[in-house]
């Protein structure tokens, strides 16, 4: 996993609350078995049918930070939603609130999902809409988002921050504790079911 410390780039304002993962990537794209190349599925319905959709505007086509609305990424657990955003080129998503599973998936996969107060999101939208070239910085080191005169701290637990900054894979981290898992397994209830 790529390390994440500080990222600066242009941003895409998505003024649409309750964007569920079916909208982020429709189910037909879930049939693939590869791990990459999901960018074409990102917001596929909106990109195909709605000329006014923000990613269809040339001035926003290149952004790497998505400024989303409340309850972004609700619904299905499909991690493809995170992959589609990453494959398209997004490094961070900012929103007042996220679907839990989506946020977990994002932070696991190195897509920084940052919760910001609604007022700050609104100011960011305004700044970016006024000037699409506005550079937004997501600073994980300082736990801060900056754009022009907007400076906002955000919360992220130390552990996740450390893991993202080191680019560490969760599985490798857990495998360091195999002894604990072995010990736990010895005291599980005897009646618990097995599948084979």
């Amino acid at each position: 996993m790529e390390k994440f410390t500080v990222h600066t780039g242009s941003a895409v304002p998505l003024r649409h609350s309750n964007v569920d993962t079916d909208q982020i990537i429709p189910a037909v794209y879930l049939k693939r078995v590869a791990r990459t190349g999901f960018e074409d599925g990102l917001f596929a319905a909106w990109r195909a049918n709605d000329p006014a959709f923000v990613l269809n505007k040339p001035e926003f086509a290149e952004g790497s930070i998505l400024i989303a609305d409340t309850d972004f990424g609700t619904g299905s657990s499909r991690e493809h939603a995170v992959w589609a955003l990453q494959d398209y080129g997004f490094k961070a998503v900012l929103a007042p609130r996220f679907g839990d599973i989506f946020r977990g998936n994002a932070l696991k996969g190195g897509l920084l999902a940052v919760v910001l107060p609604y007022e700050v999101i609104e100011r960011l939208w305004e700044a970016v809409e006024a000037d699409p070239a506005t550079q937004v910085t997501v600073d994980l080191q300082a736990r801060e988002v900056r754009a022009g005169d907007i400076v906002q701290q955000f919360e992220l637990d130390d552990y996740t921050r450390w893991r993202l900054m080191e680019g560490l894979d969760d599985i490798a981290l857990t495998l360091r504790h195999t002894d604990d898992v072995d010990a736990f397994e010895k005291q599980r209830h005897a009646w618990l079911p097995v599948t084979q």
Partner: peptide, 20 residues
């Protein structure tokens, strides 16, 4: 719990999950 694909891999590999 519903989980994402990288967590599926995590459980397959370790039978555990770090959970907030």
């Amino acid at each position: 719990f519903g989980i994402g694909t990288s967590q599926v891999e995590h459980v397959l590999a370790t039978q555990t999950l770090p959970m907030p």
